[in-house]
Amino acid sequence: MSVKVDAVLCMSCGGCVGVCPSLALELENGIKLVPVDEDCTDCGICERFCPVGAIKVDSQKRRLRER
């Protein structure tokens, strides 16, 4: 998995959790956004969605498909 969350930027809004098709993001206690390693497919959807640009997925590994 190559999802990196910038905790300084993240607003903990949880939108990325709602778009993640693999249940690979967790908003712990409604506060802390944590990627769940084993389930992530590096699809890049969370990065595309994020309202503040807090998520980065390694561009070499990203597999974003327009859905």
Partner: peptide
């Protein structure tokens, strides 16, 4: 449990938002 809902997906109901069906708000 809101836009970040997981409970429904645990219960077997697919509530994943497709990017074409969600707005990003600030």
């Amino acid at each position: 449990d809101g836009v970040e809902s997981k409970a429904a997906r645990w219960a077997g109901i697919n509530t994943t938002n497709r990017l074409v069906d969600i707005d990003s708000g600030f």
